[in-house]
Design a protein around this nucleic acid. Structure first.
Lengths: 106, 106
DNA sequence: AGTTCATATTAGAATATACTGATAGAGTAA
DNA sequence: TTACTCTATCAGTATATTCTAATATGAACT
């Protein structure tokens, strides 16, 4: 199991490494949301959203609480946002690089 | 394919989300290494290391060049280290939290 | 009690990953 | 040329992920 630091790091990364889960985390930047709001905004099936939330929660990234019928989720680790912001920078750099290579190839 | 930002972010995360690949990236913190050095230090099969390096390279995280018989790899995106450092902090926080919960349960 | 709403869980199929072992190819040295 | 070194790639199997659709749970309301 998650015994060494590398494995624990990999588990967190794996939990984050899905477009839908990244979108969920981004939705939670401004605070907690219920499942119904998340599935409405992302236009995804309820069971699918629940499963992705479970993955993020299992990795310790999300907290959850019941509010009547609704289940509210929030991000417990602000460091997640640092990771996603860093990745956005990497993606932009990569795209810029590809554009540059394409224009140089003419 | 990798068309939107979330998918591109997820692709990078997926490339990083394996203990062996994290260890490889950490090995490359101090500069380039050949496959033989990496497999020796990690005590892994050569084909296994080659495959993991290919994953990292495909994600744009590593550069590679030939040096005689050897193939040298290096990290092209210093942001990768920011991501891993942030993750290490998260892992430590998580472990501390579990220790705290265990001691409170007594 | 039964009904409805919000969410979780399960089953199953499709796809993706990871590893091992074998083979291929490219470069070097004799 | 042959032999050797280093690395990549392929084939095959095992395991993991992801999605959809169906079912279960559980709280609130009548």
């Amino acid at each position: 199991m998650g015994t060494d630091v590398f494995t624990l790091q990999a588990e967190i990364l794996k939990a984050l490494s899905h477009p839908t889960r990244i979108r969920i985390v981004n939705q939670l930047r401004r605070g907690e949301r219920c499942v119904c709001e998340i599935m409405a905004e992302l236009e995804l099936e309820q069971s699918n959203v629940s499963q992705h939330l479970a993955v993020l929660k299992r990795a310790g990234l999300l907290g959850a609480r019941k509010d009547g019928l609704k289940m509210m989720y929030w991000v417990r680790r602000p460091e997640v946002f640092v990771v996603l912001d860093t990745l956005r920078r990497m993606v932009l750099l990569r795209v810029e690089e590809q554009v540059r290579l394409l224009s140089e190839a003419e």
